[in-house]
Amino acid sequence: MTEPRRFPRRAVLGAAAATLAAPAIVGAKPASIVVASSGGKLEEAFTAAYYKPFTAKTGIQIITAVNTYSKLKATVDAGAVEWDVAQMDAAAAANSAKLGLLEKLDYAVIDRTDLVEGVPHEEYIPCDVAAAVMSWNTRNVAPAAAPQSWAELWDTKRFGGQRGFWKQPFQTMEIALMADGVAKDQLYPIDVERALRSLERIKPQIFWWTSGGQSAQILIDGDIAAGMSWNGRVFDPKQGGAPVDFSFNQALFVADAWVIPRGTKNRQAAMDFIAFTLQSGPQAEFAKAIPYGPVNRKALPLIDKPRLAFLPSSDENLPKGVLQNFDWWAQNGQKTGERFNSWMLG
């Protein structure tokens, strides 16, 4: 419906922009770029590790925005892009790429030589490594019963109580497959029915959470005995003495990714910004501010040992798990979600 209108409007905008830019030198730096993120602690870490140093180095100010996903589509479709760079969940980034909402990344500007294997993609690039980990409440689960694998977490004879999982097929299905004995390098393409059969075995014990905050809350308060959490959500409570613990065994590594919305006026500056954030120095600073691992391997030596133990992409932790296949979800997410929802209602 928006298709026929898009091009004339963009052409008008483009012409207007060209007229405005005419007196300036071609390729001149913009005074500022807009970077959208999910806010909160992530944005605090971005500000300390990326935004401020980037502004200090280039003079380009960073204007922050909230990365409402549907806004990406709305603004790109209308030819009125508001963000120059956006952070989003890597699976969402892959989906946006499939829908044609993103600019191609310029790997002549972005240096990918030291990045973790499997990270660079044509239209999006993960900028950190987080993990969906097994976690448990140490009051509800005796130390001897603490799960070392997803299969042990599934075992209701090992310890009783509810198991908390994300009410989404992404990540939950990979974990269900590992619990059913699928090797971590054999997860894709996902055997949806097998994953559901695995979840079916503990369905009455599942507590479905819908937000990261909720997942931590129910774990700390003891509503559930164990389950899946994001490492960033259980790290602080554990450090603060809450009765929670977690393990990177069979972790599913997930990521935030940078994308450039199609039609941005500051494509070059956006590319420079992304390239800057992926350098070892800023990557190390980021990982010190929030417990998400760097994607640049050269950042690891810049981080102290105790901190590395909690980072998903450290040399010690990375081999324990597997990186999520974002493109599989971009291709199959919706129909898998439909099946997942039907199963849940049944």
Binding site: T68, S70, N95, L99, Q168, Q334, G337
Partner: peptide, 8 residues
């Protein structure tokens, strides 16, 4: 559907 899959 609107915000996860962008299937408006």
């Amino acid at each position: 559907e609107a915000d996860t899959y962008l299937d408006w």
